[in-house]
Design a protein around this nucleic acid. Sequence first.
DNA 1: ACAATTTATTGTATAATACAACTATATAAT
DNA 2: ATTATATAGTTGTATTATACAATAAATTGT
Lengths: 142, 142
Amino acid sequence: MKNPLLEKIELEMAVLVRRVTSITSKNKIGNLDRSAYLLLHQLSVHGPLGVKTLADNLQLDTSTVSRQAASLEKKGYVYKVPDHVDRRAYFLQLTESGTEDFNEYKKARLDRFEVLTVDWTEEERKQFGHLLKKFNKAILEK
Amino acid sequence: MKNPLLEKIELEMAVLVRRVTSITSKNKIGNLDRSAYLLLHQLSVHGPLGVKTLADNLQLDTSTVSRQAASLEKKGYVYKVPDHVDRRAYFLQLTESGTEDFNEYKKARLDRFEVLTVDWTEEERKQFGHLLKKFNKAILEK
DNA sequence: ACAATTTATTGTATAATACAACTATATAAT
DNA sequence: ATTATATAGTTGTATTATACAATAAATTGT
């Protein structure tokens, strides 16, 4: 083992992704699945965005996001607002029911995280959030 | 925001899973994709295991693991060792070439993690590994 | 004005997954 | 001991998330 700290991160990351994927792919609260949730998350955090920007942020193909968006539109969770500056594009805007169901799903996730970290110190929670963010930033930049 | 620390973990976790999934689904080193890697990881860590145990550990359906195992067997990465105690079952044993390609893939992953955390302190790496492990344990138990 | 680029959609293919039905074996109950 | 129930693994079928390629419409650069 050349670098045990890295080995540990690598192993636990592999496990984490498997487990979290497994949880969230089963968890369909209301009409929302994980990928729909992530898309709505983006809109919720950044406000109305186009397919292209979403695809970049989520690191998905535009075609994938386009379909996800169509699906969410059909469910009445988002609607398209034309971009008057660029008439090819539009923005996806959360509807009220989209916001509602998104919040419900988010609440369920938060409750879950609450349970998972119930015996953690505040300092540990803080560190974990901090390091996750730092790691995510690194992935995007490097 | 009721608990900003939890909100942060929740958000960053969502982002993390999306990004890591995106990286690892593109990364096909040799003949290994992410799920095959995770299966071999199990064998590498715990030694020969049956389909059922693997499915439990990976939180997948046995049918899914059965197909993954068949695919790995076809590639010559694992072979089946009959379980003489329970004649329905067998163990999946890593072959030499399986071990080799697994190590190569792992090396590539480690290099990636190395780059991602190059500007981290050793203490941060240590904490990150520690907290990931703790979180994974919680998922399994709670 | 024309060529090159960009946003979004749609057609098509693939891969990972779950669920259900099945076979063969093992364990429990009577 | 016989019978019923449970378990390990496989295979058929369906779904879902995804990517890539081709296309239409609009924009930008020269």
